[in-house]
Design a protein around this nucleic acid. Structure first.
Lengths: 212, 212
DNA sequence: TTTGACATACCAACTGGTTGGTATTTACGC
DNA sequence: GCGTAAATACCAACCAGTTGGTATGTCAAA
């Protein structure tokens, strides 16, 4: 299948690394090839254009993060609200180390290329939306356990809306973290989000969960 | 002072427009000159480098938004919490029209250039932080009116922290809006933030505001 | 001997930036 | 208030380096 160990994979890894820290436009094809230890011929053998690499990188990112969250400890928690709070704790815990290590490739690229490369933007959007979708069942279950309609009839907010809002908070947290040179603000915002969700389920629940 | 009507000003306007929709790296000096109707000679007469233009654009953005918010209706509201909620209503109301018209230049640039152009990033950070700082007095006053310590001793959250969190939500909302092709998600997130703040001041206040 | 996976060498277009010049204000001695 | 010199604001042409992309070749496995 490959000469050394898959140039395509190495280019995707390089893209994740470089685009996360320099952005898509500022990362040249030569940069990517250099980082991956591969020639330009290999690049254009695997990808018809730089844009195609961008799309593939977003999809690669989706798979990476999908696996990360699938294996995360919060998946073991049974009670839906507890699992959601454990998810937020997990998101908070991984806000550590260098900025480009906990920052989101999809959000970074999406913001930069949404107008000029709609295809890349769509792949990034899909990455974020599909991750948000994994939260929806937890939220919906937690709502149902408290007699709330996940469609928002009784509360004015929906399970999917809250799932997306949590991604909004995380994406925004990354931006402020970049401005601040560290994750402190980001952690603080995740704490605010956690507090919000606790308040939502504490104050609006007419029927508290009988098991908790 | 100027030949036609200030090339420098026109370049800054062009930068705000182009960088908001294409990003900093993808916007070339030629693009900027073309949009501003000015030659490259003029560009490098007014700015020693493209990076310097980026810094100046962030500062220009700060002034623009500073004026916008200083003249906004929420400034007329007396009661602190009401003013804060009116601020959020204002932020929600201006989420309208084309993406590049309600999106934040500072957040867009900051995310893209934080590693490669620290000086630009600093200017963007300053723009966001100084705007957040205008919210702090409202929040602190609202907290004090309810017997809460703005430093966070009783609540675990501070006035400045909540101010920054609101910027986090807005910045994140812009990203998701770009993914969604419209402001709907962004508005939804501002609603969540508003609900959070209402819950914060409704549930944690031992001493409700006597005037409201 | 064909095919997939790369490498090498190359290209036209574009990049940020410089040069040397000109038109227009401004500062100021008179 | 006036002439003039210096400064400012701007322009057109140019430059070396880089850009994304291509044409052609190599080489091992099937």
């Amino acid at each position: 299948m490959s000469r050394s160990v898959n140039a395509r994979e190495k280019l995707l890894e390089a893209a994740v690394k470089l685009v996360r820290s320099k952005g898509f436009a500022a990362t040249s094809v030569d940069d990517l090839c250099g980082e991956a230890g591969v020639t330009k011929g290999a690049f254009f053998h695997h990808f018809p254009s730089k844009e195609a690499l961008g799309i593939a990188a977003a999809e690669h990112w989706s798979k990476m993060t999908g696996a990360l969250f699938a294996a995360a400890p919060y998946q073991q928690v049974d009670e839906p609200l507890e699992r959601l709070l454990a998810y937020l704790r997990f998101r908070r815990d991984i806000l550590d180390g260098e900025l480009c290590e906990f920052t989101c490739l999809a959000g970074t690229m999406l913001q930069e290329v949404y107008a000029e490369h709609p295809a890349i933007a769509a792949a990034c959007q899909e990455s974020i939306a599909s991750h948000a979708a994994t939260l929806e069942p937890m939220i919906a279950a937690a709502m149902l356990a408290r007699g709330l309609d996940p469609g928002g009839a009784s509360t004015g907010w929906t399970a999917s809306g809250l799932a997306l809002h949590s991604q909004v908070v995380l994406q925004g947290a990354f931006i402020l973290a970049k401005g601040n040179g560290g994750p402190a603000i980001a952690r603080d915002s995740v704490d605010h989000l956690t507090r919000y969700i606790c308040l939502l389920f504490a104050s609006e629940g007419a029927t508290p969960d009988p098991r908790s």
